[in-house]
Design a protein around this nucleic acid. Structure first.
Lengths: 337, 337
DNA sequence: AACATTCCCGCAACCGTTCCCATATGGTAT
DNA sequence: ATACCATATGGGAACGGTTGCGGGAATGTT
């Protein structure tokens, strides 16, 4: 039942030559008679020979596989990044193994472990919302794996990173809201410890400061990117003696949820309260009114991350200082502001 | 620079025993002294030994990797399926390598070829919109690869398949539109040769017939799931002497695009024309009015496909007749009808 | 005391390749 | 004729594990 796998030895036997010669013929080694090569190639085709990458990988100690660690492939942002990574590295014959952490640091850890055992040639990592302990990724670094960190980056390691235009995004968006005459601008932020949250909040605060608007801690709420967080934030803000006239969020999904909740409470967007997002997810163009948002191009982020990885693989052990790449964005103004 | 990889031989040397014993200790082989095992395990931990899956795969002739071929990970439908597959097979220690065909049969072919060389243990395939030639997948079948076909299935092969509730979906949706008083119901279909297109159209026609509504060929347009197809279809329908009072689509994205085009033409949904979709993509709940659609659960489809694969891997070469699984759906009624 | 049994362990083959080294052959310069 | 070189090929070690086989020591049986 179990068919015998065709190997170079089969070809060698059929042709009455040694497997060394077959190997050379197949790998375009110049030290082989053109006629012999021709015969080998023909026989290989006839027997439908398929080289065994496992054996090759064992010798070369490489698999041409890259591990991609993301929280959730169902989020359009990550799906686009993954797509970009794949297309970028496919050119060089690399394939990607995608592992979802489901935002669980524990699963993330297991995934990294498993992919390490599978001997992937490198890792592209976007850690979970709750990852605070970077031991796993540090361990990879120490073991010498090529590493690229994207979106939610690990700042503690000198590795290539690709991030969104965090500071600028919220700076621009907040500025836009101020220009629209808003003064009580709330900020729906992310987990406190995330670098992206911090930078975006800094952008928000810089815009306020520049326009001489006092910062009000009551107007900032940190979320874990969950729907219930948004609901609670809104309740909090609307119960303030002086509720906000605009809500700025650091992620589109939160903005969309906020808009729908506001609508269900009978509040009009943007008349009663303006809403702005970050990312330009597909949803931003679908809701009514359209969501003003700072556009990011996750596909491009993926491509950049993939290129960094290819560089790292090429110069392996060459110690070139790693770059941090910022993917530029732009404000897309729609009806919500 | 290139660090020496820790192998069982290193452990054996340190302990002054043979690599066979180390191997046995590590693989829970009973023929090894408990004390020896303990020593090996400790030494393995101390040296931070990582088994080499390539070597193991070479012996066992398996990689515990599955190839997943999909058109586009950025479509929410496929992202959810992929997620389901991953979670289903991860339990049994399998990992998935995802390859996007970008709806190109040529790239699909190359991907299958490449994954075959990578020696994946099986394939889960959703072929492209334009795949008419199943030679590649037949070749895999002949070579004895475990195969599962989902969503866009290959009917020519006796392999497990998981499909959406195609016939029922459009039967139910069309019936719903008729109950809402619509009589000129247009159908925005997919590529003619796709089984899913055919079955959905059959469901649509069955509902019409049952209610005694004559079928009008002018009201059916086949698309390639492209935005321009939708635009052309609308122009065609609206120029008819008796334009439709409802549009039924076999995919949500088309319905959403139709709604937006109708809106831009000044037509009201559902007052002037009702719209219904298929799938219940995230977008369906976001547009205004909400899109009535036949809900599918792509995540579940992925889980089912993954389970079929696990079965196939287990019973390899046992020749159990393959099943075709239909993932049930239900109509979600929103404002668009 | 002789023998069988059980328990551990080492030896060596094997998985499918690559690649270094040795060798045979033939041609060319000395 | 000898030395030398290039070219084409074969032999075999290596990559990192698993596994069947056989053997030695310890134990049990008569």
């Amino acid at each position: 039942m179990k068919k015998h796998q065709i190997t170079i030895i089969d070809i060698a036997k059929k042709l009455g030559i040694s497997k060394s010669t077959v190997s050379r013929a197949l790998t375009n080694n110049p030290n082989v008679n053109p006629e012999t090569r021709k015969a080998v190639l023909e026989m290989a085709k006839e027997l439908d020979y398929q080289p065994n990458m496992l054996a090759l990988g064992l010798i070369k100690n490489e698999t041409r596989m890259l591990g991609v660690i993301i929280p959730d492939i169902q989020k359009p942002f990550f799906a686009a990044i993954v797509s970009g990574i794949q297309h970028a590295v496919a050119r060089m014959g690399y394939r990607t193994i995608i592992a979802q952490s489901d935002e669980s640091p524990q699963i993330e850890k297991e995934n990294i472990q498993a992919l390490m055992l599978s001997r992937v040639d490198g890792f592209l990592i976007c850690h979970t919302r709750d990852t605070r302990n970077f031991d796993q990724i540090k361990m990879l670094y120490q073991k010498g794996f090529p590493l690229v960190s994207f979106a939610r980056i690990c700042q503690e390691l000198p590795i290539p990173k690709v991030v969104e235009d965090d500071f600028n995004g919220l700076y621009t968006t907040t500025q836009h809201l101020i220009e629209r005459g808003r003064r009580r601008i709330a900020l729906l932020s992310g987990p406190k410890h995330l670098q992206a949250s911090k930078l975006r909040q800094q952008g928000y605060m810089a815009a306020l400061r520049q326009r001489g608007i006092a910062f009000d801690g009551d107007l900032v709420v940190h979320t874990r990117f969950l729907a219930e967080n948004v609901s609670n934030a809104l309740d909090h803000w609307l119960s303030l003696p002086e509720p906000p006239d605009a809500i700025c969020t650091i992620y589109d999904a939160g903005a969309v949820q906020a808009m729908q909740l506001l609508k269900s409470k009978g509040l009009r967007v943007p008349d009663d309260i303006a809403v702005a997002g970050f990312g330009n997810d597909p949803a931003a163009g679908l809701v009514e009114p359209g969501l003003t948002t700072y556009e990011q191009q996750p596909y491009e982020i993926g491509v950049l991350a993939g290129k960094h990885m290819l560089d790292a693989l090429k110069r392996r052990f060459t110690d070139v200082p790693p770059e941090i790449t910022i993917s530029e964005g732009r404000l897309v103004v729609r009806g919500s502001t």
